[in-house]
């Protein structure tokens, strides 16, 4: 039996596609109007590429993403492994913890962190003044639910118990088991966690701006207020980065963990 495509379905789908595409097309047109008298020109992109601040903040955000990914995976891969292997009892607790950052949005997280560092434990200045320490700590917390959920889905898809017992009984050490048996099996999940984290950190504005750091999103905001056409060009660059991260997520991480791909924490 062949079914007709319902007209109403086409209508709704077209509305959706228009809503999603028109702002992007408009931004593209806008970014190309920088010539004299709004003539077509790639000038805005040229100005962006020549701005050293652009490369500086882009590099900083990228390094912060990599650092956040590394720290998150180092912390959470062993944790998720151990939870699945030995501590199945505390699973509900960890799962509760992993939705907490959803409940506590970035704007609240930054208040808590400032209070903690300034009021409660008096963190040293070298920690507070460097994005590589202060921001990454915040971003690891922000990315925690996404990373943990991805990994959790990955661990769920493999038989942790049997793999571990087989490896140990063949004489492998715990480290060998983790690195050479478990890791290759959850590589897809770890990759999807990494791409999600990349998308989150490359777009994170709230914490960076309130903690007074100059990252890529705060740079875009600064340009927004000063130079119109460059801002349009930068918005598209930022969209391209999100697009690349999501595409990476789809291409490199098959089946397990893909359903964990949802929303980043950038709004």
């Amino acid at each position: 039996m062949t079914r007709r495509v319902p007209i109403s379905g086409v209508v709704w789908l077209s509305i959706g596609v228009l809503y999603l595409l028109v702002p992007l097309l408009a931004t593209l047109l806008f970014s190309l109007q920088s010539g004299a008298n709004h003539s077509l020109s790639l000038g805005a992109y040229g100005d962006v590429v020549r701005d050293s601040q652009f490369w500086k903040t882009l590099r900083l955000s990228f390094v912060l993403s990599l650092e956040t990914i590394l720290v998150s995976l180092l912390l959470l891969v062993p944790t998720a492994y151990w939870v699945h292997l030995r501590l199945r009892r505390i699973k509900p607790l960890v799962e509760f913890l992993s939705i907490l950052p959803f409940v506590v949005p970035a704007i609240i997280l930054i208040i808590g962190l400032l209070q903690l560092y300034n009021g409660t434990i008096h963190a040293p200045l070298w920690f507070l003044e460097k994005p590589y320490t202060f921001l990454v700590t915040a971003y690891v917390v922000l990315a925690f639910p996404y990373v943990y959920r991805s990994l959790d889905a990955g661990f769920r898809a493999i038989d942790v118990q049997t793999l571990t017992e087989a490896s140990l009984s063949l004489g492998a050490s715990w480290r060998t088991t983790l690195v050479r048996v478990i890791l290759p099996n959850i590589r897809a999940a770890a990759l999807s966690a990494a791409f999600l984290t990349l998308a989150i950190v490359m777009g994170e504005f709230t914490i960076a701006s309130l903690a007074l750091f100059q990252t890529f999103p705060t740079y875009i905001n600064y340009i927004n207020q000063t130079r119109t056409y460059e801002a349009a060009a930068l918005s598209l660059v930022s969209f391209g980065i999100t697009w690349a991260a999501m595409l990476g997520l789809l291409l490199f991480s098959r089946a397990p963990g893909r359903r964990a791909a949802q929303v980043g924490g950038t709004r």
């Binding site: 992007l24 931004t27 047109l29 999103p217 927004n224 930068l234 918005s235 930022s238 999501m246 997520l249």
Partner: peptide, 18 residues
């Protein structure tokens, strides 16, 4: 997936341009 993650400053500007 991309659009749900595309928010914040660039999104605001995309709509200003629109």
């Amino acid at each position: 997936g991309v659009a749900a993650n595309f928010a914040g400053v660039p999104l605001a500007f995309a709509f200003i341009a629109t």
